[in-house]
């Protein structure tokens, strides 16, 4: 077995042929989890004794906020793979993740602002967590803009990779902002190392939605990557054969 599984990722054709099937599985799985988790969170989870029903926004806000950071970390891993192994698919993944990452970061900022109004009495404060998340959104926009500004895909990939790696410094700032500074934003609702403070009837649907959004992101990234692979490999014999058969 060895490293064969890793080297297979170097072949856009190998990826394209399989990604369609993976995408289908991810799509249906994500849809099932998101419908279950959202209905559970909106209708079956008990009302919060302090926040009332406004807390139900967390069933969307927390998963997309986690995802926004995880996708940036994934983009950084792709940048390392691109620089070390010169794998073309890593650059394709970076290009796809940037768009999805921006969408989820924007959704996280908007849902957080709307939740903030009934809870804090304001849509926005220049608090460390909110500001560092806003910087994350600008980093994603920077990566998207930089790629659009450079015509040569190889050069664009390298430039984006450097920007992504520089921006990684923002991830620990986001994570620890609620501990390092006195912020209005509360600490994490869910931690891997501790038992959740809320009852199971509240955190199980949250976990379901977190899983659902992660799989939905995989579905979206695979879809976007397949389209980019086709565009970039348009001169390859396998793409020409595939399209002429379609």
């Amino acid at each position: 077995m060895g490293w064969r599984w890793f080297h297979q990722w170097g072949s856009p054709r190998w990826f394209y042929e399989r990604a369609g099937r993976w995408q289908l599985v991810c799509g249906w799985l994500a849809l099932t989890l998101l419908i279950t988790g959202s209905f559970w969170g909106l209708a079956l989870a008990p009302v919060d004794y302090q926040q009332g029903n406004s807390y139900r926004i967390i069933y969307l806000h927390v998963p997309v906020a986690f995802l926004a950071q995880a996708l940036y970390a994934a983009m950084a891993v792709c940048a390392v793979v691109l620089f070390v192994w010169k794998m073309k698919l890593a650059d394709v993944a970076m290009q796809s993740i940037a768009v999805m990452g921006f969408a989820f970061t924007a959704l996280s900022l908007i849902s957080g602002a709307v939740w903030g109004k009934p809870t804090w009495g304001t849509y926005w404060v220049w608090d460390a967590r909110l500001t560092s998340m806003l910087i994350l959104a600008f980093l994603y926009l920077g990566v998207i803009g930089l790629r659009a500004a450079i015509q040569d895909p190889d050069q664009a990939g390298k430039a984006c990779g450097i920007l992504v790696l520089v921006g990684v410094v923002n991830l620990p700032i986001i994570k620890y902002s609620v501990e390092w500074w006195n912020t209005l934003h509360q600490p994490a609702s869910l931690k891997l190392t501790e038992k959740p403070a809320m009852p199971a009837s509240m955190w199980v649907p949250l976990l379901t939605n977190i899983l659902g959004y992660y799989i939905a992101a995989a579905y979206l990234i695979l879809g976007s990557m397949r389209a980019i692979v086709l565009e970039r490999e348009r001169r390859s014999a396998w793409v020409r054969e595939l399209v002429s058969r379609a």
Partner: peptide, 23 residues
């Protein structure tokens, strides 16, 4: 969702719109 439906539902609508739009 008295009195918070006005905050909760538009966010879920936006979520559906983002996922659907990206698809």
């Amino acid at each position: 969702m008295a009195p918070h439906g006005i905050y909760v539902w538009p966010i879920y609508g936006l979520g559906v719109l983002v996922l659907g739009g990206l698809t």
